[in-house]
Amino acid sequence: MRLVVDLNRCQGYAQCAFLAPDVFAMHGEESLLYNPHAEEAQREQVLRAATACPVQAILVEDTDEAPATMGEGLSGVR
């Protein structure tokens, strides 16, 4: 599944890193790292994280058609 975090919006509330720690990780207090191609098995946790985000910065693709691809590393240092 694909997802994008709007890092201009992100304010480091870290709710996603609590709720989906396999996909989102805090680097220090304010920088967020995340996997933009999370495994499909993470969908439920990712949706929890997206819903809980206080600034609604997490965009998740709607369909689950694309098979999960891993190994593209983390992205999103700010």
């Binding site: 890193a17 609590f18 720690p21 990780a25 805090m26 680097h27």
Partner: peptide
């Protein structure tokens, strides 16, 4: 919680 203990609650 994160960054040091991201999995305590999870």
């Amino acid at each position: 919680g994160p960054p040091e203990t991201p999995r305590r609650v999870y």
